[in-house]
Protein backbone atom coordinates (compact mmCIF):
# COMPACT_ATOMS: atom_id res chain seq x y z
CA UNK A 1 0.00 0.00 0.00
CA UNK A 2 2.75 2.29 0.95
CA UNK A 3 4.70 1.42 -2.19
CA UNK A 4 1.64 1.96 -4.35
CA UNK A 5 1.08 5.37 -2.76
CA UNK A 6 4.67 6.36 -3.34
CA UNK A 7 4.41 5.32 -6.96
CA UNK A 8 1.30 7.38 -7.49
CA UNK A 9 2.89 10.42 -5.88
CA UNK A 10 5.98 10.00 -7.94
CA UNK A 11 3.93 9.64 -11.10
CA UNK A 12 1.97 12.76 -10.31
CA UNK A 13 5.14 14.71 -9.74
CA UNK A 14 6.68 13.54 -12.97
CA UNK A 15 3.59 13.98 -15.12
CA UNK A 16 1.51 16.88 -13.81
CA UNK A 17 -2.18 16.64 -14.44
CA UNK A 18 -3.35 18.88 -17.23
CA UNK A 19 -4.43 22.23 -15.75
CA UNK A 20 -2.86 21.54 -12.33
CA UNK A 21 -1.40 25.08 -12.19
CA UNK A 22 -4.81 26.70 -12.47
CA UNK A 23 -5.87 26.46 -8.79
CA UNK A 24 -2.66 28.22 -7.75
CA UNK A 25 -3.16 30.87 -10.40
CA UNK A 26 -6.76 31.24 -9.29
CA UNK A 27 -5.75 31.63 -5.66
CA UNK A 28 -3.21 34.28 -6.63
CA UNK A 29 -5.81 36.11 -8.72
CA UNK A 30 -8.31 36.04 -5.85
CA UNK A 31 -5.63 37.34 -3.50
CA UNK A 32 -4.87 40.25 -5.82
CA UNK A 33 -8.58 40.92 -6.28
CA UNK A 34 -8.97 41.33 -2.53
CA UNK A 35 -5.88 43.54 -2.34
CA UNK A 36 -6.80 45.60 -5.40
CA UNK A 37 -9.01 48.21 -3.65
CA UNK A 38 -6.28 48.90 -1.08
CA UNK A 39 -3.60 49.01 -3.75
CA UNK A 40 -5.66 51.47 -5.77
CA UNK A 41 -6.28 53.66 -2.71
CA UNK A 42 -2.58 53.56 -1.81
CA UNK A 43 -1.67 54.40 -5.37
CA UNK A 44 -4.00 57.40 -5.40
CA UNK A 45 -3.35 58.83 -1.92
CA UNK A 46 0.28 57.84 -1.36
CA UNK A 47 2.21 56.80 -4.46
CA UNK A 48 1.01 59.50 -6.87
CA UNK A 49 1.14 62.45 -4.40
CA UNK A 50 4.48 61.09 -3.13
CA UNK A 51 5.95 61.01 -6.62
CA UNK A 52 4.51 64.47 -7.35
CA UNK A 53 6.04 65.81 -4.13
CA UNK A 54 9.45 64.58 -5.19
CA UNK A 55 8.99 66.27 -8.57
CA UNK A 56 7.71 69.53 -7.08
CA UNK A 57 10.64 69.59 -4.65
CA UNK A 58 12.82 70.31 -7.69
CA UNK A 59 10.61 73.18 -8.85
CA UNK A 60 9.64 76.71 -7.82
CA UNK A 61 5.93 75.83 -7.74
CA UNK A 62 3.83 78.32 -5.77
CA UNK A 63 0.90 75.97 -5.32
CA UNK A 64 -0.94 77.42 -8.29
CA UNK A 65 0.02 77.72 -11.92
CA UNK A 66 3.03 76.26 -13.68
CA UNK A 67 6.11 74.81 -11.94
CA UNK A 68 9.60 75.54 -13.22
CA UNK A 69 12.50 73.16 -12.69
CA UNK A 70 15.11 74.63 -10.36
CA UNK A 71 17.28 71.57 -9.82
CA UNK A 72 18.62 71.27 -6.27
CA UNK A 73 17.81 74.91 -5.49
CA UNK A 74 15.23 74.10 -2.82
CA UNK A 75 17.58 71.64 -1.12
CA UNK A 76 20.43 74.17 -1.18
CA UNK A 77 18.05 76.69 0.39
CA UNK A 78 17.19 74.12 3.10
CA UNK A 79 20.84 73.80 4.06
CA UNK A 80 21.13 77.53 4.68
CA UNK A 81 17.68 78.18 6.10
CA UNK A 82 17.89 78.94 9.87
CA UNK A 83 14.17 78.23 10.27
CA UNK A 84 14.72 74.73 8.86
CA UNK A 85 17.64 74.17 11.22
CA UNK A 86 15.58 75.31 14.21
CA UNK A 87 12.61 73.14 13.21
CA UNK A 88 14.86 70.11 12.69
CA UNK A 89 16.46 70.64 16.11
CA UNK A 90 13.01 70.81 17.68
CA UNK A 91 12.07 67.56 15.94
CA UNK A 92 15.24 65.92 17.27
CA UNK A 93 14.51 67.14 20.80
CA UNK A 94 10.92 65.95 20.42
CA UNK A 95 12.13 62.52 19.28
CA UNK A 96 14.59 62.19 22.16
CA UNK A 97 11.89 63.19 24.64
CA UNK A 98 9.31 60.75 23.25
CA UNK A 99 11.83 57.91 23.10
CA UNK A 100 12.66 58.51 26.74
CA UNK A 101 9.76 59.85 28.80
CA UNK A 102 6.53 58.36 27.35
CA UNK A 103 8.29 55.05 26.59
CA UNK A 104 9.54 54.82 30.18
CA UNK A 105 6.12 55.82 31.49
CA UNK A 106 4.43 53.24 29.26
CA UNK A 107 6.81 50.46 30.33
CA UNK A 108 6.54 51.34 34.00
CA UNK A 109 2.74 51.66 33.88
CA UNK A 110 2.34 48.39 32.00
CA UNK A 111 4.66 46.54 34.38
CA UNK A 112 2.75 47.81 37.42
CA UNK A 113 -0.57 46.91 35.79
CA UNK A 114 0.70 43.44 34.91
CA UNK A 115 1.19 42.74 38.61
CA UNK A 116 -2.36 43.49 39.70
CA UNK A 117 -5.40 41.32 39.06
CA UNK A 118 -8.27 43.42 40.35
CA UNK A 119 -9.39 46.54 38.48
CA UNK A 120 -6.77 46.00 35.78
CA UNK A 121 -9.33 46.51 33.03
CA UNK A 122 -10.53 49.73 34.69
CA UNK A 123 -7.02 51.16 34.66
CA UNK A 124 -6.44 50.02 31.07
CA UNK A 125 -9.58 51.81 29.94
CA UNK A 126 -8.75 54.90 31.99
CA UNK A 127 -5.25 55.11 30.50
CA UNK A 128 -6.50 54.50 26.98
CA UNK A 129 -9.36 57.03 26.94
CA UNK A 130 -7.14 60.07 26.14
CA UNK A 131 -5.89 58.26 23.06
CA UNK A 132 -9.39 58.01 21.56
CA UNK A 133 -10.26 61.67 22.22
CA UNK A 134 -9.96 63.79 19.06
CA UNK A 135 -6.72 65.77 19.09
CA UNK A 136 -8.47 69.05 18.38
CA UNK A 137 -10.78 68.45 21.36
CA UNK A 138 -8.07 67.52 23.86
CA UNK A 139 -5.82 70.29 22.46
CA UNK A 140 -8.51 72.90 23.03
CA UNK A 141 -9.22 71.59 26.54
CA UNK A 142 -5.53 71.74 27.44
CA UNK A 143 -5.28 75.23 25.99
CA UNK A 144 -7.87 76.33 28.55
CA UNK A 145 -6.28 74.30 31.34
CA UNK A 146 -2.92 75.96 30.67
CA UNK A 147 -4.32 79.47 30.56
CA UNK A 148 -2.40 81.77 32.97
CA UNK A 149 -5.65 83.39 34.11
CA UNK A 150 -8.05 80.54 34.79
CA UNK A 151 -5.96 77.41 34.18
CA UNK A 152 -4.61 74.75 36.53
CA UNK A 153 -1.47 76.80 37.21
CA UNK A 154 -3.58 79.62 38.59
CA UNK A 155 -5.72 77.14 40.54
CA UNK A 156 -2.71 75.40 42.08
CA UNK A 157 -1.20 78.79 42.94
CA UNK A 158 -4.33 79.57 44.93
CA UNK A 159 -3.96 76.21 46.69
CA UNK A 160 -0.52 76.99 48.02
CA UNK A 161 1.89 76.71 45.09
CA UNK A 162 2.52 80.42 44.46
CA UNK A 163 5.38 79.82 42.02
CA UNK A 164 2.79 78.59 39.50
CA UNK A 165 1.09 82.00 39.52
CA UNK A 166 1.19 83.86 36.20
CA UNK A 167 3.16 81.17 34.37
CA UNK A 168 2.11 81.24 30.73
CA UNK A 169 3.08 77.75 29.65
CA UNK A 170 2.19 78.27 25.99
CA UNK A 171 3.17 81.94 25.75
CA UNK A 172 6.70 81.64 27.15
CA UNK A 173 9.19 80.67 24.40
CA UNK A 174 11.26 78.72 26.96
CA UNK A 175 8.31 76.59 28.11
CA UNK A 176 6.12 76.23 25.04
CA UNK A 177 7.76 73.22 23.32
CA UNK A 178 7.99 71.23 26.56
CA UNK A 179 4.39 72.08 27.37
CA UNK A 180 3.10 70.84 24.01
CA UNK A 181 5.19 67.67 24.44
CA UNK A 182 3.63 67.20 27.87
CA UNK A 183 0.12 67.50 26.42
CA UNK A 184 0.97 65.04 23.67
CA UNK A 185 2.41 62.66 26.29
CA UNK A 186 -0.85 62.79 28.23
CA UNK A 187 -2.63 61.41 25.17
CA UNK A 188 0.08 59.02 24.01
CA UNK A 189 1.40 57.15 27.04
CA UNK A 190 -1.86 55.24 27.72
CA UNK A 191 -1.62 53.72 24.25
CA UNK A 192 1.92 52.56 25.05
CA UNK A 193 0.74 51.06 28.35
CA UNK A 194 -1.91 48.96 26.62
CA UNK A 195 0.46 47.72 23.90
CA UNK A 196 3.28 46.92 26.36
CA UNK A 197 0.85 45.20 28.71
CA UNK A 198 -0.47 42.97 25.92
CA UNK A 199 3.11 42.07 25.04
CA UNK A 200 4.04 41.40 28.69
CA UNK A 201 1.17 38.95 29.03
CA UNK A 202 2.83 36.78 26.40
CA UNK A 203 6.01 36.38 28.49
CA UNK A 204 6.29 32.86 29.92
CA UNK A 205 5.10 33.01 33.59
CA UNK A 206 7.40 30.14 34.59
CA UNK A 207 10.37 32.47 34.03
CA UNK A 208 9.09 34.77 36.78
CA UNK A 209 8.46 31.77 39.02
CA UNK A 210 12.02 30.53 38.53
CA UNK A 211 13.41 34.00 39.13
CA UNK A 212 11.50 34.33 42.40
CA UNK A 213 12.80 30.95 43.53
CA UNK A 214 16.29 32.27 42.81
CA UNK A 215 15.53 35.31 44.96
CA UNK A 216 15.15 37.96 42.24
CA UNK A 217 13.48 41.22 43.29
CA UNK A 218 10.86 43.14 41.28
CA UNK A 219 13.40 45.33 39.48
CA UNK A 220 15.50 42.28 38.51
CA UNK A 221 12.37 40.54 37.19
CA UNK A 222 11.58 43.59 35.06
CA UNK A 223 15.13 44.08 33.82
CA UNK A 224 16.10 40.46 33.17
CA UNK A 225 12.77 38.85 32.17
CA UNK A 226 10.12 41.41 31.18
CA UNK A 227 12.27 43.74 29.13
CA UNK A 228 14.05 41.00 27.09
CA UNK A 229 10.70 39.25 26.65
CA UNK A 230 9.03 42.27 25.04
CA UNK A 231 12.09 43.61 23.23
CA UNK A 232 10.55 43.29 19.72
CA UNK A 233 7.55 45.36 20.85
CA UNK A 234 9.79 47.97 22.48
CA UNK A 235 11.95 48.22 19.37
CA UNK A 236 8.94 48.45 17.06
CA UNK A 237 7.30 51.20 19.13
CA UNK A 238 10.67 52.94 19.33
CA UNK A 239 10.87 52.89 15.55
CA UNK A 240 7.32 54.20 15.21
CA UNK A 241 8.08 56.90 17.79
CA UNK A 242 10.98 58.13 15.68
CA UNK A 243 8.81 58.21 12.55
CA UNK A 244 5.83 59.87 14.25
CA UNK A 245 8.08 62.40 16.02
CA UNK A 246 9.27 63.73 12.68
CA UNK A 247 5.70 63.89 11.40
CA UNK A 248 4.32 65.70 14.47
CA UNK A 249 1.99 68.55 13.56
CA UNK A 250 -1.47 68.41 15.13
CA UNK A 251 -0.89 69.37 18.78
CA UNK A 252 1.66 72.01 17.85
CA UNK A 253 -0.60 73.56 15.26
CA UNK A 254 -3.59 73.56 17.61
CA UNK A 255 -1.77 74.92 20.65
CA UNK A 256 0.91 77.29 19.34
CA UNK A 257 1.05 77.24 15.51
CA UNK A 258 4.82 77.00 15.86
CA UNK A 259 5.12 80.11 18.06
CA UNK A 260 5.81 82.05 20.11
CA UNK A 261 8.73 83.39 18.08
CA UNK A 262 9.26 80.01 16.37
CA UNK A 263 9.96 78.26 19.70
CA UNK A 264 7.71 75.30 18.81
CA UNK A 265 8.31 75.25 15.07
CA UNK A 266 8.84 71.72 13.72
CA UNK A 267 9.26 70.45 10.17
CA UNK A 268 5.50 69.87 9.86
CA UNK A 269 4.54 73.45 10.76
CA UNK A 270 7.37 74.86 8.65
CA UNK A 271 6.17 72.82 5.69
CA UNK A 272 2.57 73.96 6.20
CA UNK A 273 3.57 77.62 6.46
CA UNK A 274 5.70 77.52 3.33
CA UNK A 275 3.04 75.68 1.34
CA UNK A 276 -0.03 77.69 2.35
CA UNK A 277 1.17 81.09 3.64
CA UNK A 278 4.41 81.77 1.76
CA UNK A 279 3.17 80.24 -1.50
CA UNK A 280 6.35 78.17 -1.76
CA UNK A 281 4.85 74.77 -2.43
CA UNK A 282 8.04 73.55 -4.16
CA UNK A 283 10.15 74.44 -1.13
CA UNK A 284 7.54 72.87 1.16
CA UNK A 285 7.73 69.70 -0.95
CA UNK A 286 11.48 69.54 -0.36
CA UNK A 287 10.86 69.68 3.41
CA UNK A 288 8.33 66.87 2.98
CA UNK A 289 10.88 64.80 1.06
CA UNK A 290 13.42 65.30 3.87
CA UNK A 291 10.80 64.15 6.40
CA UNK A 292 10.09 61.07 4.29
CA UNK A 293 13.82 60.34 3.96
CA UNK A 294 14.21 60.40 7.74
CA UNK A 295 11.44 57.79 8.01
CA UNK A 296 13.02 55.68 5.27
CA UNK A 297 16.40 55.79 7.02
CA UNK A 298 14.77 54.79 10.34
CA UNK A 299 12.92 51.84 8.81
CA UNK A 300 15.99 50.77 6.82
CA UNK A 301 18.10 50.78 9.98
CA UNK A 302 15.47 48.68 11.75
CA UNK A 303 15.31 46.16 8.89
CA UNK A 304 19.10 46.04 8.62
CA UNK A 305 19.46 45.15 12.29
CA UNK A 306 16.80 42.45 11.96
CA UNK A 307 18.59 41.00 8.95
CA UNK A 308 21.81 40.99 10.95
CA UNK A 309 20.05 38.66 13.40
CA UNK A 310 18.99 41.13 16.09
CA UNK A 311 15.93 39.84 17.93
CA UNK A 312 13.82 42.94 17.36
Amino acid sequence: MGVLQMDRTAAQSVQPRRGAGRPKLRRTAIGFAFMAPLLVVNLIVIAVPGALSVWYSFTDWTGLGPAHFVGLGNYRHLLGDPEFHTALLHNLAWTAYFLAVPMAMGLFGAFLLSRIKRFQMLFRVAYFIPYVVATVVSGSIWESLLSPDQGIGDGLANLGLPWLKNINFLGDPHLALGTVAFVNTWQWWGFLVVIFLASMQAVNPSLYEAARLDGANTWQEFWHITLPGIRPTVMFLGLMTVIWSFLVFDYIYILTQGGPAGSTDVLGTLLYRNAFANQQAGYAASIGVVMALISVISVSGFLYLRRRGWDI
Binding site: P260, A261, G262, R273, N278, Q279
Partner: peptide, 19 residues
Protein backbone atom coordinates in the same frame (compact mmCIF):
# COMPACT_ATOMS: atom_id res chain seq x y z
CA UNK B 1 3.74 89.83 -1.24
CA UNK B 2 3.26 86.46 0.55
CA UNK B 3 6.68 85.84 2.10
CA UNK B 4 7.04 89.44 3.25
CA UNK B 5 3.56 89.31 4.77
CA UNK B 6 4.37 86.13 6.71
CA UNK B 7 7.72 87.62 7.75
CA UNK B 8 6.04 90.73 9.16
CA UNK B 9 3.81 88.90 11.63
CA UNK B 10 6.05 85.93 12.42
CA UNK B 11 9.44 87.58 12.81
CA UNK B 12 8.02 90.44 14.84
CA UNK B 13 7.51 87.84 17.59
CA UNK B 14 11.30 87.49 17.70
CA UNK B 15 11.61 91.26 18.10
CA UNK B 16 9.06 91.23 20.92
CA UNK B 17 10.89 88.41 22.72
CA UNK B 18 14.28 90.09 22.27
CA UNK B 19 15.71 87.53 19.83
Amino acid sequence: PPKSDTYIYEQVEKVLTGQ
